[in-house]
Amino acid sequence: MRCYIVYYFKIFLIVCAIHELTCGVISTATNEVYKKLLQLRSLPFEDCGSMFQVMYLKIDGCTTIPCTMKRGDLVDVRVLFDDNGSGVSFLKHEVRWVFNYVKTQAAISPDPCDGNQECIESTGDGKTYLAKVYVNTTLPVMRGRMLWEAKDANSNNLICFEVPVSITL
């Protein structure tokens, strides 16, 4: 009788182990597929040395590359990124317009990490932030790039991406 109990207990443990392994694999595979779908829906961008994976980028009014931006506009930029569970709670943005290798500082209104404002929202998919960038009225009417860097409190570059832009009147 004791042999049968040990035998059934071993079978039970094997079934539990298989269940745990397959659920973990399925969960991981589902998460990876979801990240790939987000990236497919994202506005195309070039990563320039991000520590964390940028999964999704949306710039209001921009559906194709280069993004057409009108001088004097305030444009919403939404980014979803995976901080690998590190609990990022601070981001300082440095945004520049780059035209023919000349970099001009872009104004962010408001910078989400100034004062007591919530900098980053946690979502089930990662972390997200929304910022508004001002398209300076002094920018040249031409094609260039928007270079976006988000740094932590120690000035580590957590997120960095570039998007081709076309400035219009």
Score class of each variant (00 low, 15 high):
52 F>M: 05
5 I>R: 14
25 V>R: 12
110 P>V: 06
43 L>C: 03
100 N>M: 11
14 I>M: 15
23 C>D: 10
53 Q>V: 04
138 T>E: 14
60 D>F: 11
81 F>S: 08
7 Y>P: 00
58 K>I: 03
126 G>T: 07
46 E>N: 08
23 C>Q: 14
148 W>H: 12
116 N>L: 11
41 R>I: 03
145 R>Y: 12
96 R>P: 00
144 G>A: 06
38 L>R: 04
102 V>D: 03
7 Y>M: 07
145 R>A: 03
38 L>K: 05
84 N>D: 09
94 E>M: 11
150 A>V: 07
38 L>N: 01
17 A>C: 13
125 D>F: 12
132 K>C: 00
26 I>Q: 01
106 A>F: 07
9 F>Y: 13
82 D>E: 08
26 I>H: 02
16 C>L: 15
47 D>P: 08
55 M>H: 07
63 T>E: 10
61 G>I: 09
76 D>H: 15
23 C>K: 14
91 L>H: 05
92 K>V: 10
61 G>Y: 10
129 Y>W: 15
6 V>L: 14
65 I>P: 00
43 L>P: 01
51 M>L: 13
115 G>E: 04
55 M>T: 06
88 V>R: 01
28 T>F: 09
146 M>T: 04
14 I>T: 14
143 R>G: 13
111 D>G: 09
26 I>E: 00
141 V>Y: 07
134 Y>D: 00
89 S>K: 11
31 N>I: 02
116 N>A: 04
53 Q>K: 14
106 A>D: 03
138 T>D: 14
35 K>I: 03
147 L>I: 03
104 T>E: 12
21 L>Y: 15
93 H>W: 13
88 V>L: 09
31 N>W: 09
32 E>P: 00
58 K>D: 10
80 L>H: 09
59 I>G: 01
84 N>R: 15
134 Y>P: 00
57 L>C: 03
75 V>N: 02
128 T>R: 10
31 N>Q: 10
7 Y>A: 08
101 Y>T: 07
28 T>H: 12
143 R>F: 02
74 L>C: 08
51 M>F: 10
149 E>F: 10
6 V>S: 05
123 T>P: 02
54 V>N: 01
99 F>M: 06
45 F>T: 02
64 T>G: 02
36 K>I: 08
49 G>R: 14
15 V>R: 06
114 D>N: 14
128 T>A: 12
79 V>A: 03
